[in-house]
Design a binder for these strands. Structure first.
Lengths: 333, 333
DNA sequence: CGGATGCATGTTTACGTATTCACGGCGAAG
DNA sequence: CTTCGCCGTGAATACGTAAACATGCATCCG
């Protein structure tokens, strides 16, 4: 391994001078700087990350936790996060946490392997997370949030999104409205459901319990649930789904029974992932500005890493209804 | 920060003994070990990753490079990679490299920020990659490979997969066969095309140049290309696509023109991503064992990190045709 | 003309861990 | 009873970098 010491010898200067050149800032004469730079190139020098991390107490890496990377929502989020981190010169360590195993990520921040953490899928307030916040570790919650907690959070207005969906379906004249829920541990699922239910209530079209099915944000569960709903003597004429993956599963469930979307049943999703726009689904959905949210979260995290004394901030992004073929403005049955 | 020194003081032993307990192996009396362990717990000690990395010359992290994380193929790959790395107690740093920007990853391995690299999307032999191999850095190529290069590689038999598709379409009686290509820099695209062409030639059904369209493994490009093909006076009766994402785009292109799949045109993809099995597409495709390949690649990489003198190994996994609705056995037009 | 100021650079140290070397005590073997 | 060896532990060191502190030389001002 080539060290700054080697470079120093080669350039005929001290190791400190090499370090100064590396940092760019310190005052080094132009000639010396040039000599050091060419020595670095000649020797094929690359600063050792571990030594630098030990000295600066910065890993140059931030950790990101997602719940299920095969849910297309997360790759879209990750792409934006990755871009923004790249721009900031930070590396990204990823955890694909099945269940509450954020433990690995929280361990990593304690060890100093990452400088901060971006949680996209917090559910409940776990003990390790609580401890991390008490120690004032840099943590930002993205997408899903937690109430009653002093922690940076970037979310979308999921209650408003649920309201949009409800108002849209009621105004279109639907009487029998179904709902495929998300996991009750996810704030997104809860808020969307709350907004949806509240608005239905306000408009006098409360959800019939038998048209509500539990779910876990997975395609397969949603598909099965949709088939159950459609198999009922009085199936719903429209179904709102807690996220797009659920909606895609619902559409597939309908197709599997020969039920047509939107002619026989409308389907509305949530998130507006790329696939929602694809012809095979043409999914009406509530969009949240994934990319903007991701960027904001990364910036907040980096700010917090640099200054841990900042007060906890919350940013909420607006939701927007995107109408497509799955609720084409043909008369609903 | 709590250091091993602090723990040592608390337990009334030397720092060396704490380190010995940490390593588990060294000889420490049971009583001392117990005392140290409880001191660690009491003090809330977590070993510092940077110091450990500096001392052991191991980061405990491996790097993974993908080309486009929003292509659903890669999340599936990443899920398996992540699981296997978790099992090995390694963290995963991810690069979503647009274009040939594997540079960041190769820089990271030089700096010692990662112990090894898993490339899922090499294209050509870049200068930095060549240098890394010359320095004998632990690198494994997964999914895409490179010929004439002494480097661990885990691929599927893409030539055989292309053959499977060709034989299947010809036997089904198709005369006008189209092909949506992948980027010519990807070995997977080249090999699939080679197998496909060779077998068509052997069976006397060579590809008509006007039914071949370039592509880049993206949905949008494929959709546009499919629309071009279908707009021709003599459209193809079947189209083979260089990967599943391309095939989904092709199906959507067909739908957008009111062309039915499979009644009017058959579509065959490659990879067998999860979405291929969803009802809206029901895509016939050539499966490669993504999960097995990912596991194998991770194991190979870890072995190589532990012993850089191993000879370069290549593993090739078989391909398998999966028939679904997009080529239902109804007479093709 | 002398002391002070500032700049470029060298010397030294600290970061936290793993490991080598050193040491004391105790048991076994002669 | 002596000696040798082993076992448990402590002391010391090295890993590579960044930065605080030190030094020497030139310049400037009184």
């Amino acid at each position: 391994m080539v060290t700054s010491q080697d470079v120093a010898r080669l350039a005929g200067v001290s190791q400190a001078t090499v370090s100064r050149v590396l940092q760019g800032s310190a005052r080094v004469s132009p000639e010396t700087r040039e000599r050091v730079l060419s020595a670095m190139k000649q020797a094929g020098y690359h600063p050792n990350a571990a030594a630098r991390a030990m000295r600066t107490r910065r890993a140059g890496t931030i950790g990101v936790v997602v719940a299920d990377i095969t849910n297309p929502f997360y790759p879209q989020l990750l792409e934006a996060v990755s871009d923004e981190l790249g721009r900031a010169g930070q590396r990204m360590t990823l955890w694909n946490a099945t269940g509450p195993s954020e433990a690995g990520a929280l361990e990593a921040i304690r060890e100093g392997a990452v400088d901060g953490l971006l949680f996209t899928t917090v559910t409940e307030m776990s003990k390790p997370l609580e401890e991390a916040l008490q120690r004032n570790e840099p943590v930002v919650l993205l997408h899903r949030g937690l109430d009653h907690i002093g922690c940076d959070q970037v979310t979308a207005d999921n209650v408003a999104g649920g309201r949009l969906a409800a108002r849209y379906l009621v105004r279109a004249g639907h009487e029998r409205i179904g709902f495929l829920r998300g996991p009750q541990s996810a704030s997104t699922a809860l808020h969307r459901e709350r907004g949806f239910r509240e608005t239905l209530d306000e408009l006098g079209h409360s959800l019939a319990p038998e048209l509500v099915r539990p779910g876990d944000f997975s395609h397969d569960t949603a598909r099965a649930a949709m088939r159950e709903l459609l198999d009922r003597p009085q199936p719903p004429s429209a179904v709102f789904c807690a996220n797009d993956l659920t909606a895609l599963g619902a559409v597939d469930g309908a197709i599997s029974l020969g039920v047509r979307v939107p002619e026989d049943v409308w389907v509305v999703g949530y998130d507006d992932i790329a696939m929602a726009a694809w012809e095979a689904y043409g999914l009406t959905t509530v969009r949240q500005p994934i990319t903007d949210m991701a960027r904001m979260a990364v910036r907040m995290l980096i700010e917090r890493i640099e200054d841990r004394t900042l007060p906890a901030r919350r940013r909420e992004f607006p939701a927007e209804l995107v109408i497509r073929r799955s609720t084409a403005h043909t008369p609903a049955s």
